[in-house]
Amino acid sequence: MVVVDDLHVVYKIYGRGHDRGTAAASLLRILGRKRRASIREVHALRGMSFVANRGDAVGVIGRNGSGKSTLLRAIAGLLPAEQGNVYTTGGAALLGVNAALLEDLTGERNVILGCLAMGMTKQQTKEKYQSIVDFSGVGDFIDLTMKTYSSGMGSRLRFAIAAAKSHEVLLIDEALATGDAEFQAKSHARIQELRSEAGTVFLVAHNLEEIELTCNRVIWLERGQIVEQGEDVISIVDRYIDASGGQPVLRDPVTRRRIKDQVRTAATTW
């Protein structure tokens, strides 16, 4: 369960360079620190309140830069709130799109370390190991370092590790987007399972169909504020598509399911 209460998050960005220059240059930079006072504030979340229950799968939609990832990171407790607060039942796990765990280590090591870091015992880790590897489907690649993985394989393994423990809050930030169809079906099933174990799942995805299929609630963000939220996922998604100038989705009038493209073309040729 997650309660977000009037949450404001402000990023303070120091105008710092990213060079790791020579020792002399770094000394000069430290001496010159006072003169470099360009701090830019970006008000990423501007007062957001909502409640997500146990067993909810909440989809978060919105354009790039609307605050979706920031919201997830704030729920995970990674970003301090400027004002307001986030309350959760327990530890949250955040799966980001590019977050390799330890990319210069093998998949096997990542599985073991991931499990131990989540607080499992050695015994539990041993028991879970095979099922994680099977779920991830990376096969023989488990012996190779994670940086040799394709982005899809990396996200499969990360999801498999994080999903091995039943988290009270699981935050998925586009982490399933690179998976193939088979994996999306598997992860979808696992999310439903986590929900039934009274977990709360947040899903950020630009693939709106994925949100429609997975989530029972949706929050639409724009410039750090909630435009609309509710349980009528399909209507909100349609209004979001409309507002952002996308092509309207054809839906079956009764089931409100999406009508697939091939069906649509077939229908028009008739």
């Binding site: 009037d6 957001m48 724009e222 410039r223 504020q225 435009v227 979001y240």
Partner: peptide, 13 residues
Amino acid sequence: KTPLRAGRGAIGG
């Protein structure tokens, strides 16, 4: 503080 009300979106939706 009273939070900003949800729904004051910039979009004319």
